[in-house]
Amino acid sequence: MSHQYAHPDMLVSPEWVEQHLNDPKVRIVETDEDPALYFLGHIPGAAEIGWHHHLQDQVSRTYISVPQFEALCSKAGIANDTTVVFYGDNSNWWACYAYWAFKLFGHEDCRIMNGGYAHWKAIGKPMTTEVPSFTPARYQAHPIDQTRIRAFRDDVLAHIEAGHKLVDVRSPKEYTGEALHMENYPQEGSLRAGHIPGAHSVPWATAIHPDGTFKSADELRKIYLEGLDLKTTDDIIAYCRIGERSSHTWFVLKYLLGLPNVRNYDGSWTEWGNLVGVPIVRGNQPGVSPR
């Protein structure tokens, strides 16, 4: 078995990024949890694309429209054939989320910079506060059939009834359902605690080193393929609380391990934990599907 990632080109190193800072075919994109972080300093020439204020609709809980996405790319100087390299804070949570959203709109060439913002900074690579402006590019989106990489709540219900696999990437306490019972501070967002029946707990950070870079292909295979007995024929859904940490695991499963059928459930626990009538399991065992 090869010691390589399944799709090694989808992950680029900071060195690769540094060599392509002035490459007109490459656009570096920072996507952060914290909307102010980009303005404190970023990779020279990087565009800022916010998960919330750029990629999400500001009224409904969904993504921007196709024309809005085309305008966003155009403004960031991203053409259909541009290589878009995402990086960001929190070990690339939102970078992976933006990557996934770009895939929904059919962008061909997306990459992740290994280690994200913190790693780039820690190894002393150049940063600037200068906000670049880009020559608008022509962009025409070709959205994919969303259901290939995105699961909606009814898809999840069908998935658990069919006994397919799920990965819950939240913290162990969120998985067991203890997290809603902490002191007098009920977390906002969900009325019920626990996990989706049949889901296995593998917190997202299991996939990375302390510096935020991804673990080796061999280590990842041991954690996911052996640990959860995942096979290339399996239909898999990953989820977390709002879909960003699960984008990170989605990237690992799909591109680093090469599992073809992985979907991100972006409704995640803030939807499932509030839905009326859906099954929920408490405790540290995956539990069984309702039928």
Binding site: E33, P35, H52, H53, Q56, N184, Y185, Q187, E188, G189, R241, I242, T270
Partner: peptide, 19 residues
């Protein structure tokens, strides 16, 4: 600025300070 999903962390901070 932060969006509905992320602002709850700030509410947590504020509630704790007040309590």
């Amino acid at each position: 600025l932060l969006g509905m999903q992320r602002v709850s962390g700030l509410h947590g901070v504020l509630r704790r300070v007040r309590d």
